[in-house]
Design a protein around this nucleic acid. Structure first.
Length: 224
DNA sequence: CCAGACGTTGTT
DNA sequence: GTCTGG
DNA sequence: CCAGACGTTGTT
DNA sequence: GTCTGG
């Protein structure tokens, strides 16, 4: 499960990693990109640039479909807050719901909270890597997980928007991931859904020996 | 039918 | 909104 | 996910 | 321990 990540990518790197700029990797239209703060320690509740393939409902309803002339949807680089506040959250409720920051890809199509977002509210999130904590006795040791060759990871994600009387809680997203677990419980590999293509993180034949290689130990760097 | 939840993790 | 439990 | 707080009243 | 804020 991913609840902490590193993202110091520049916007154009995000676009490129998501294969969203077309063959020439042209810059995308952006929304709220000024809210992006590159960080080694990104957590739920903070803003990240994501590549979304649909604009606000308003525009769609106004007949202003977010589609190109070829019928393809336009990707937009949109800064969104990590953590889903489901659209059915009442305006009187406190938006403390952003504990919903992950979704299990296995069950995503069955869950009421996520299912309606699947067709048209998907987005991609590029990061350099993410952190997992492993219990070593009584201590928790963070590991930094990333590609050996430094290529960004691309998470598939869902997004939604919400606002209350105080104003906007504009865009919100959560990640989904697919973990492959061994019989002994060891995480053998993590897959990320990049569009329709499954990208496999590096993985060793030997589960236990491999884990040390797959999960490279790292201290969490302080946020500055 | 209505009321109330709607999500994740946990263990190596 | 939509599903589950009572 | 972790770090850090962790209380009360008003207002059926 | 458990909840909240980031």
């Amino acid at each position: 499960m991913c609840g902490r990540a590193r993202c110091t990518l520049r916007p154009e790197q995000v676009t490129w990693a998501c294969c969203a700029g077309g063959p020439d990797s042209r810059p995308l239209a952006t929304v709220d990109l000024n809210k992006y703060r590159p960080s080694y320690n990104v957590s739920p509740g903070t803003y990240l640039p994501v590549v979304a393939y649909r604009k606000e409902k308003k525009k769609a309803e106004a007949g202003e479909e977010d589609e190109g002339k070829d019928g393809e949807r336009c990707p937009v680089l949109h800064c969104m807050k990590w953590g889903l506040v489901p659209s059915f959250t009442k305006k009187s409720d406190k938006p403390g719901h952003y504990r919903m920051f992950n979704a299990r890809s296995e069950s995503i199509a069955e869950k009421a909270s996520f299912r309606q977002l699947l067709p048209k509210n998907r987005c991609l999130v590029a990061v350099e890597g993410f952190y997992e904590w492993k219990k070593d006795g009584s201590k928790k040791q963070p590991y930094y997980i990333h590609f050996q060759d430094e290529r960004p990871l691309v998470f598939a994600a869902l997004y939604d928007s919400w606002e209350n009387a105080e104003g906007t809680w504009p865009f919100i997203f959560n990640l989904f991931e697919w973990q492959v677990t061994c019989r002994n419980g060891t995480v053998l590999a993590v897959y990320f859904l990049l569009g329709r293509t499954r990208v496999k993180l590096q993985c060793e034949e030997e589960p236990l020996a491999g884990q040390q290689e797959v999960l490279l130990g790292a201290e969490l760097l302080p946020v500055t």
